[in-house]
Every structure is written in structure tokens, then in C-alpha cells.
Design a protein around this nucleic acid. Structure first.
Length: 339
DNA sequence: CGTTATGA
DNA sequence: TCATAACGG
């Protein structure tokens, strides 16, 4: 999906509970995508209500967010706004990949192939209904969300830079390129994760990544980190064939500017200047108000049970936990901005 | 994914 | 009580 700087950026594993009291600006699309691709039956079928609408994300949100609130963590979800023109080709390319996966999925289902799950995951897409339902549920839960003018990661990064949030919560590293001082991975998917091809599960813990430490460790500037990201590939360009984080770091440190890097590679990157400018100065807004409110049990129950076929028992149980957790957290005066 | 059922 | 399987929607 986004920029991948694994093995380059130093990370610090922590326990989820260590984030108690922290405000995390969560990349909503990143989270929804994960829920939608992972919460499925073994044959790849997502959870759906009786109307056939996908509900995997709603299950993910209600349970995961409740767990975060129980730990005293304060999530604010940041949705993407209008995608930048620079992203158009990536969006088109991804749609084509998804469509191909969707056809493979249908074929796999037809012949009862075990590959079906894999293709279903690759075909995961987010539509307007999914976004609207997610916002509705978050609203009823009392969880704040904002809609970014452009990229959610950029807006979330800005919020951490300004001190409105403590961490960007996302799986990919774009926020470092956008200048976020701190990010945390694996906040929305902590727990057990299946090791591919093997039938075992490993614990996935949250990982803190700090921009300053990353730059100092690699002995580069933020601009150079952006160049590394662009060489490897971002949401706005495919990246250079066979250039991964390690090679990109070497190239960027060896040369004094990207023209020289392009010279050595004997190729350039389309829109390089514009992409870099976008990471340095993305459209963001300060026009938002973040507040955590009391959940509305009746509305949650009606929305999930009556409109989306959730079981009354299960929803009542989780809503009770959410209400209790909010009351507990609200008691602690050290935590600001609750109610 | 996270919860719930099961059973040693 | 804990590990694991299956279910949820």
C-alpha cells in the first residue's frame, strides 16, 4: 500500500497498555482496509448482513475500538478527503489489480479452490457505503473522526506535529515522510496474526517509530528520507525496479542530489518534484475539534442489530463494556478532552 | 480481526 | 484454567 521502510526505521516494541492516555490519530482507510481484508471466512467471504452489505469493518471497529478505550487509549479517526491528482495513476492501477483479483476469486470459488481467500483479500475495496457506515458507528460510539482535505496520513501527521495527537496510527510509514514526529504500527491489529503458509500464530505488538531517531540513526535529513521513500515507491509513484530501502539509502547518501541518483540509475521518476513537494507541504487543516463523547447504546444497537444483522446479545455485551470503559476513563481527570 | 464454544 | 476450533454477519 504505502511507503515501506521496514528494516530501515528503528522501531520499539511496546505493550498496547503503555499507550494508555495517549491520543492516536488513526489512519481510517488503512484500518478499514485491514479489517475488510482480514475479517473473512476461510473461503474468503466477508461478514455480511441480510441485505448482503459487507459488515466486517463494523465488527472490527466495535470490538477493536472498545478494547482501545478500555485501555484508556484515545483514538481519533482521520479519513481521506479528495485524493490528490498525483495519485490518479496509482488509484487506476490498484483498481485494475483488484478487478483481476476479483475475477480470480470468482473462478476460485467456482472450483472450490483454497486460493479463494487470497484472491478475496486482494480484491478488497472500500466504497462510499463502507465509509459512511464506519463514520456512523464511530459517531454513535462517541469516537471523534475528522475528514482530511486530502490524504488522511498527511492530516494525522500534522495533528501530531502540532501536539493535537501523540501518535499517528498506521501500518505504513508515509507519516514519517509527512513529518510526523512519532507513529505507532499495529494498534488496530494487535493480537495474534497467522504466519503465512504455516498454521501458527505469533503475537503482534505495537511498534513505535520516531522520526528524529530514524533520521539520526540513518544520518540523513527528512528530505533524504522522502527521497528514499520515492525511490522505493509511494502512493504517488511505483518506485524503481529492484530498489528497496537498503539500496535507496545507499543511493541517497552517495549522491548530493536526486539528479545524480537518477544519473546513476539511468532513469528518472515521473513527477519527482511534485511528489516531494506534496510530502513537504500537503494540504491539511487546523479546522477541527476533537472530543470523545458518551456512547449512545440504543443507536448502536439499532444500527448494528436492526440494520446490519448483528446479534443482540453480542452487541449488548460489547456496548456495556464500552460504556463502562468510558465512564472509568472519564473519571480520570488526567485525561483531557473526554466529554 | 475478536469473541465464543468446547473439551482436556 | 487454558489452548484451540469455529463462529460472527
Amino acid at each position: 500500500m504505502g511507503v515501506d521502510l521496514t528494516d530501515l526505521a528503528p522501531k520499539h516494541e511496546i505493550e498496547l497498555k503503555e499507550l494508555s492516555g495517549k491520543i492516536i490519530a488513526i489512519d481510517a482507510f488503512n484500518t478499514l482496509y485491514q479489517f475488510l481484508s482480514i475479517i473473512r471466512q476461510p473461503d474468503g467471504t466477508p461478514l455480511v448482513d441480510e441485505k448482503g452489505q459487507v459488515t466486517s469493518h463494523l465488527s472490527g471497529i466495535i470490538y477493536r475500538v472498545t478494547n482501545l478505550i478500555e485501555l484508556g487509549i484515545k483514538p481519533v479517526f482521520v479519513f481521506d478527503g479528495k485524493p490528490p491528482l498525483l495519485k490518479a495513476e496509482t488509484i487506476k492501477a490498484r483498481a485494475e489489480v483488484r478487478e483481476a483479483a476479483r475475477q480470480m476469486y470468482e473462478a476460485a470459488v467456482e472450483e472450490g479452490s483454497a486460493e479463494a481467500y487470497k484472491y478475496a483479500q486482494a480484491a478488497t475495496s472500500i466504497n462510499a457505503q463502507i465509509i459512511e457506515d464506519s463514520k456512523t458507528l464511530l459517531g454513535y460510539m462517541g469516537i471523534p473522526f475528522i475528514v482530511a482535505p486530502s490524504e488522511g496520513e498527511a492530516q494525522a501527521s500534522c495533528m501530531v506535529s502540532k501536539g493535537a495527537a501523540d501518535y499517528v496510527g498506521s501500518q505504513d510509514y508515509d507519516s514519517l515522510l509527512f513529518g510526523a514526529p512519532r507513529m505507532v504500527r499495529n494498534v488496530t491489529i494487535t493480537g495474534r496474526r497467522k504466519v503465512p503458509r504455516r498454521n501458527i500464530y505469533v503475537d503482534v505488538k505495537p511498534e513505535i517509530v520516531e522520526l528524529k531517531e530514524t533520521l539520526e540513526t540513518l544520518d540523513i535529513t527528512r528530505e533524504q528520507l522522502i527521497d528514499i521513500g520515492i525511490l522505493v515507491g509511494t502512493d504517488f509513484n511505483p518506485g524503481i525496479y529492484k530498489v528497496g530501502p537498503k539500496t535507496a539509502l545507499k543511493l541517497v547518501k552517495k549522491h548530493k542530489n536526486m539528479q545524480e541518483v537518477f544519473g546513476e540509475l539511468e532513469q528518472t521518476i515521473e513527477n519527482y518534484e511534485e511528489i516531494k513537494e506534496f510530502f513537504l507541504h500537503p494540504p491539511v487543516t487546523d479546522d477541527y475539534h476533537i472530543a470523545w463523547g458518551r456512547p449512545e447504546p440504543a443507536k448502536i444497537k439499532h444500527f448494528l442489530c436492526d440494520e446490519h444483522s448483528f446479534s443482540q446479545d453480542r452487541v449488548e455485551k460489547v456496548v456495556e463494556r464500552l460504556e463502562k470503559a468510558v465512564v472509568e476513563t472519564g473519571k480520570q481527570k488526567t485525561l483531557s478532552a473526554w466529554f
